[in-house]
């Protein structure tokens, strides 16, 4: 989940170090996006499905 600086008053005037610390703290939230391999796997399934005919 991205941290929106514009909409987040607590981040006004934030230092780069503090920002990096917050991103680090939030890393777990982004932990389960698909890896490139997983994405390719799903892409292949969808592609095979699209091209299939009896």
């Amino acid at each position: 989940m991205a941290i929106s600086i514009k909409s987040s008053p607590v981040l006004t005037g934030i230092t780069a170090k503090r920002f990096d610390a917050l991103v680090e703290q939030n890393k777990s939230i982004d932990a389960r996006t698909l890896s490139e391999t997983e994405k390719n796997q799903i892409d292949n399934v969808l592609m095979k499905s699209k091209n299939f005919s009896f």
Binding site: T33, L34, K39, I42, V45, L46
Partner: peptide
Amino acid sequence: FIKKWFRHED
């Protein structure tokens, strides 16, 4: 597969 499908960008 279902887990990954629902996390897919599409």
